[in-house]
Amino acid sequence: MNLFRLGGDLAHLVSIFILLQKITANKSAAGISIKTQILYSIVYVTRYIDVFTKWISLYTFVMKLIFIASSFYTVWLMHNTYKSTQNPQIDTFKIRYLIGGSIIMAAIFNHKLTFNELVWSFSIWLESVAILPQLFMLQRTGEAENITVHYIFALGIYRALYIPNWVYRWIFDQYFDYIATVAGIIQTLIYSDFFYVYYQRVMKGKKFELP
């Protein structure tokens, strides 16, 4: 464990907390893409499919359960309690292409042809693009509440911090996972435009509006 990885995981926890806080405090899921949330549920279930059968550490075990449970809880809240506040007319990204593309990528790029390795690789590729419906929705609206934007920002920071973590592990631990690294860089690049607008607007105390 190094500080980049710990910082990334904590940013991930913060993003989940911000999202659930926003939805429950406002009693509204407006501006949040349920498609992105469904994709994250799929990502965590496939990534952590061995959570009960392969022990890494108490830390990873607890975090995995939190990520699975919170993503399902978010989808459940959006689909049931706050269904009327959703924006299905602007949440129109075709996620079947993201899922299909991730299946193809996992079939080509995987560490071993076993079920667990294939679903692990699928989860990595799917995670790299899972934010797209949310960013697409943001673009269609043109502006968003700062709380929504903070959520996306914290989630982006999580994956961005994993990049120096991989550099660190490559140098000091002789550890290198090309699939996680390439997909992680793609994911961070997807956020780069968002990060730029976030810096230009939100950091300077303005409303998040796309130029």
Binding site: R5, D9, H12, I56, S57, T60, M63, K64, F67, H111, K112, E117, W120, Y162, N165, D173, Q174, Y175, F176, D177, A180
Partner: peptide, 10 residues
């Protein structure tokens, strides 16, 4: 070295 197969990251 197949240490990456352990998948110890989140």
């Amino acid at each position: 070295d197949n240490s990456y197969l352990i998948h110890d990251e989140l």
